[in-house]
Amino acid sequence: MTAKIAYGDIEVGTELPTQTFPVTRATLVQYAGASGDFNPIHWNEKFAKEVGLPDVIAHGMFTMAEAIRVVTDWAGDPGAVVEYGVRFTKPVVVPNDEQGATIEVSGKVAAKLDDNRVRVDLTVKSAGQKVLGMSRAVVQLA
């Protein structure tokens, strides 16, 4: 249950390949079904605006799921993720058009830990704004 990346090959500051993830209204409906989170702020524009949001917003847990893909794609084995945490700081607003929104995720090794583990800090943005804070994963390397 360890990654294909060797601890010895990694230095603090090593960058993970940046990825961009699209999210449309259809994505949110699909995620609602798969996750069981049917909160109408994620699919009903009228409801979202009534509770003071600018528009329908993505599930925070959807954004969290996309962000860790930068780590799992890099590590090879998703089971190498031993810790993962985020703070939901800003919503990802998803307009009702074919483009929707995009979530841009970059990652960097911030610390080398004991037992061949590293801490990766993620930067997660949508429409130029950070949407997750304190987004960190601890990964077990080979």
Binding site: M61, V81, F88
Partner: peptide, 11 residues
């Protein structure tokens, strides 16, 4: 939802 964190013994 403010924060979310996981610590895994195994997947």
């Amino acid at each position: 939802h403010g924060d979310q964190k996981f610590a895994y013994t195994r997947p």
